[in-house]
Amino acid sequence: MNPFFKFILKLMSSPKIDIQEDYQSIRKFQQIFYAKPKRSYRILNEQIYSEDRSHKIDVRVFMPKKKKHEEPVLYIHGGGWVIGDIDSYTRACMNLADALGRVVYSVDYRLAPEYPYPAGLEDCFRVAEILLEQLEFTGPEDTSKWIIMGDSAGGNLAAVVSILLREKGLTQPYKQILLYPVTYWDHSEESPFDSIRRNGHDYGLTIEKIQSYMKLYVPDEAERKNYKVAPLMAEDLSNQPETLVITAEYDPLCDEGEAYASALFKNGNKVRLHRVENAVHGFITYPKFATPLDESYRIMNDFLTRN
């Protein structure tokens, strides 16, 4: 790893950053750093009602410069269920739409701690339902041809949405892509996954930060073992979409992401696992020419275009 980059990551790992105390300041910084997108014919802003019509859910639609494939992507952003939104992920989703040649729908789900579990999950599930309804009216005849994707906490939500769609007897995505997903509930030193201890101190995303995010998202510790929070705890992972799991070498979540890929495979699903070497957590938001992202785009395209 580049020594200067490692030094920057070390600074970002400072214990002075307290997620539970500083999450609002981080959100404000993101609002300043990620300016709202300029008017563009390639971006559409939509809203849908929650199932009980108590609130609206913002959805941003990204059209690729050159559309190559009909199957759309529902993208669920990361941020530990606490930070991140469709503005901070706009550049990432624009790049993703162009790289995959597909329309990308980005969902602005409710965030903790103002809206703890299961609020964000309910929003993501609702948008998945609406996307399916839209495909039935305006899309290809085969409405199963859609893709769900997410990174980090968004990868967690994407995985759980796929499980819930199966449980409710609804049409599932035909493929899912999970980028360095959260799949387990314990991120302490006692975690069964060595990458938590190996990578959990000096690479930006620390053990302390992960645990703080989890506490804000699911205050009830016992509830964190629920498969709707930790999908690796699910007793039945059969009949899931064909899955690509992408992990990062220096990510504390590396091992649990790979364990989820293994669990899916053992339950009879088609699974592809790819670890990006010399990479850290969160690279989906990097500039599109960054090596980890360029590599991931190639892997995603190969996975999505193969039958």
Rank of each mutant, 00 (worst) to 15 (best):
R102H: 06
D142C: 14
S144H: 09
F125L: 09
L165K: 06
E136I: 14
G154S: 14
E141K: 15
L164E: 13
G139L: 13
V107P: 05
E114P: 09
L131H: 02
G155A: 06
L111V: 02
G155W: 02
K168F: 13
D98E: 10
E136T: 07
R110G: 04
K145P: 10
D123P: 00
V103N: 09
G120Y: 04
L164N: 11
S106A: 14
G101C: 05
I148S: 00
A158H: 01
I147Y: 05
Y117C: 00
D108V: 03
L157W: 01
Y115W: 11
A158Q: 14
A119V: 10
L131Y: 00
G155C: 08
F137S: 15
K145W: 04
Q134C: 15
V127E: 01
F137G: 15
R126I: 05
Y117L: 02
R166P: 01
P118Y: 09
P113Y: 01
G150H: 11
V127T: 02
K145T: 09
E167N: 12
A128C: 09
A159F: 10
R166W: 09
T138S: 15
L164I: 13
I147P: 04
R91I: 10
S162I: 10
Y115S: 05
Y109N: 09
V104I: 14
T138P: 03
W146N: 03
G154M: 05
I147G: 00
S106K: 01
T143K: 15
D123G: 00
M94G: 13
A92G: 04
A153S: 01
R110H: 08
P140H: 12
A153L: 03
A97E: 01
G120Q: 11
D98H: 12
T138V: 10
A119T: 06
V107S: 01
G120N: 02
L131I: 11
N156T: 10
C93N: 07
P116R: 03
R91D: 12
G139C: 13
P113N: 11
V161K: 09
L100E: 09
K168V: 08
P116L: 09
E141I: 07
L135I: 07
A128N: 07
S144F: 12
V107M: 04
R91M: 13
L96A: 04
A128K: 06
